[in-house]
Design a protein around this nucleic acid. Sequence first.
DNA 1: ATTATCATGTAAAAGGTTACATGATTTG
DNA 2: CAAATCATGTAACCTTTTACATGATAAT
Lengths: 183, 183
Amino acid sequence: MLKNALLGFLNYSPMTGYALKQQMDGSTSHFWHAKLSQIYSTLKVLEEDGMISSIIEEQETRPDRRVYSITESGQQQLCVWLNEPLTETGSTKSLLLLKLFFSAQLDKKAIVTQLRLQRQLHEQGMIFYQTETKALIAGIVKQHKGMKKDALFWEATRRFGELCEETYVRWLDETIQIMEEKL
Amino acid sequence: MLKNALLGFLNYSPMTGYALKQQMDGSTSHFWHAKLSQIYSTLKVLEEDGMISSIIEEQETRPDRRVYSITESGQQQLCVWLNEPLTETGSTKSLLLLKLFFSAQLDKKAIVTQLRLQRQLHEQGMIFYQTETKALIAGIVKQHKGMKKDALFWEATRRFGELCEETYVRWLDETIQIMEEKL
DNA sequence: ATTATCATGTAAAAGGTTACATGATTTG
DNA sequence: CAAATCATGTAACCTTTTACATGATAAT
């Protein structure tokens, strides 16, 4: 699905692989992310498939850049994908939960330390969504008034991130208390 | 990490690959899952590495089964893994969120239909954790009183699943309302 | 001076999914 | 009689991560 994510971003405007990475990190990273190496190789495949096209821009002070643009086929493909209904819920993988599931043999101290560290990290995440991510969206809307409709959807995903982190913090507090009482 | 998950289950008791799949489906599936084919091939690697050993049990009415047991090396490895601290939060991938992020070009009806379907699925998930998963854990504790400590950890992961589904339902209700008002 | 940023890629390995292949027994 | 369950595996393919490789400029 990285293919579709890249098409989605290139549908906003032409960009380099490097810029696509930054866009993802700044917007979808809490529900979709990729390494630069994967982005570059996926862009290559997308171009071979005619979904995007690229031109090399020479720069004086910076290295040459390959700027990708979405083609008509690409826009069509993006549209098809967006219209496909999702009939299942996504399946997650969480190392924290997996470890915790098997942690009966660990001592109380190690468990509580682990949980407290996670609590801190998720609290930071929550604050990040409430401030920086929110400001980022507001900033784009201010610059590009035509993006107001898009921003409604970005805000929905931001809000989900915020609620998830809130849930994590709540659950971790609850779990730390139980572990301290009953272990 | 599937390797460690399998070691975790085999540390409870010896089992076949088929049974491991069932155990995972019934307990860790909301934060860790695997296909049978991957389980079989991973068990092969674990045995080559001396983490587990297997014997073939012949059965009369059923196909022969290969029963795996954890070795001392395996228990050691499991213990090492459990003690490694997690200094990061896990990164998720969600198709629903990814699609929603780029959905400004879809029409209102398609979006709301999609969100309503997801709401229904997550409500079902929530109820599942509150009833069936809860009953499953209680059942094991009744049968094996020695598992009471383990059950504390299983319950913590179950509770997380429940809270996550609750969050999903809340967020979906909120988002459906916004889409109906502002789109 | 050193670190961060800009900028692009390749190659190998690990992780994971889908499809193929088999076949008896039990349940509805 | 059909479908589900028990039971095991292989092979091809796709996705993702990690490591390697390079090199200039801008900021601290």
